[in-house]
Design a binder for these strands. Sequence first.
DNA 1: TTGCTCCTCACGTCACGTGAGGTGGC
DNA 2: TTGCTCCTCACGTCACGTGAGGTGGC
Lengths: 274, 274
Amino acid sequence: MFKIGDFSKLTRVSIRMLRHYDEMGLLPPAHIDTDSGYRFYNAEQLPRLNRILALQDLGFSLRQIGELLAHPLSMEQLRGMLLQKQAELQEQVRAEQERLARVAARLDQIELAQAGGEGGRYDVVIKELPAVWVAGARATISSYSNIGFLFERVFAHLAPLRVQGLPAAIWHNDSAREDEIDAQALVFLEAAIPASALVQVYQLPAQKMATLVHHGSYLRLPQAYNALTYWLARGSYQISGANREVYLHFSTPARQDDDSYITEIQFPIQHATE
Amino acid sequence: MFKIGDFSKLTRVSIRMLRHYDEMGLLPPAHIDTDSGYRFYNAEQLPRLNRILALQDLGFSLRQIGELLAHPLSMEQLRGMLLQKQAELQEQVRAEQERLARVAARLDQIELAQAGGEGGRYDVVIKELPAVWVAGARATISSYSNIGFLFERVFAHLAPLRVQGLPAAIWHNDSAREDEIDAQALVFLEAAIPASALVQVYQLPAQKMATLVHHGSYLRLPQAYNALTYWLARGSYQISGANREVYLHFSTPARQDDDSYITEIQFPIQHATE
DNA sequence: TTGCTCCTCACGTCACGTGAGGTGGC
DNA sequence: TTGCTCCTCACGTCACGTGAGGTGGC
């Protein structure tokens, strides 16, 4: 028989935890002194404690372990649980490795900044955007700054409906030619509204996005794009579609050199392994 | 200006968390209505929120982020913190991968058991043993079961000192010959005691151990050894020294076929990469 | 007018560590 | 007799989610 302190030394499990396992019914002591309340353990209890520790190491919670010990699973069921655990752990490892890549990218960013670069002002954030309704107009334009008339079309469509929302652009840059830009102006909606010949209304699908907020004039947007694409190149993501700009602070008509503008750049991404 | 719900939708940060960041002083709203207490945010706050989220993603706690935002670090200091984070994350990834290997080993164990094997009854547990004083006697013997006389030597040394402790054996199996076993009998002590010509007293160094508890006769110890060595072969550990047996439940003189015996087998291990 | 949004307060999570304050055994 | 060990009770951790119960704006 071991007093709790000796059993703790033997098993390297803290006294606190042995008491906790007792409380949870996972490992009641072999004997409890009725006068003093002292817990006494014996060597026969070691296999059970080891099973608890092993299951914990496999990633089960103490509650789950309690159930596993109370209602032992068949080999086949246990195998199923472990296969699921394995998948979870693999996903966790992947997530950790991606985080590591992001730390490395951040370190790179610092070194570039020390070398005189500009990227250090931006923080890239990954978001899961849900599906959302938009009203949009699309056309091929000859310059990025010419998107204005598309927005006018959309706004003209929305005004009589008394609908408002954040404006955004999607740049479908399939063409290699710099003067053939497949551009889409859109406004985010709360819900579906009627469409028209010139303005489409549809749902953008849910999408994982790498985003960055640029606070300043459009003339310095290229630096922001550089920071984001550099970050993406360093990481473990692939760009999986057309990039967007969300105009969080702007004026109409747009000016190219307004330093108060705030623009979020978004690139749809997916895991490089998918 | 955005109400908290709109800002939450925009940033994909829950309302609960925006309020929490306010409470912590990380991101106070740009404006709070004095009557209603409503929080209002504006687009200028997005870069700060993104910085919070990016630092969180790098593994900093909200408290640390608060300090980083209040007292910005130099590039060099930030680099140092990130390098440390990187090391921590690498260690975490390694630990997760080892855990994954253990899950895989467990799955193997199940398949072996289904094929009629015996390994399924054992749970391997890793422990960090601290340095500990022992009294021991060492000799080359011709059979494992001949270790008894070495224990008698140790017990004879301890008896007049009125010292007790758990007995254990260390098997220094350097020789290839099965009838030349370099064996050591020892007893764990609470503190140092005098040595003698036949009994050494010294400290076993701290050591990471892979352990397993065998409940049953010594005749079935080989199965327990098989389970442990198989587990070790599957995992990412290297055996780094002589294995031990700790006799948790036994009798003197020892019998080979006593099913009530409880024995812990220990292999010193280190990471395969070290 | 009626949902909708916002507010504060507070509990629960999960596996622990770390006290405070008190008692029994060598 | 005096440390030592054990006991119970309870708080703190940390980033959240999820209510309860109540109020203001279209």
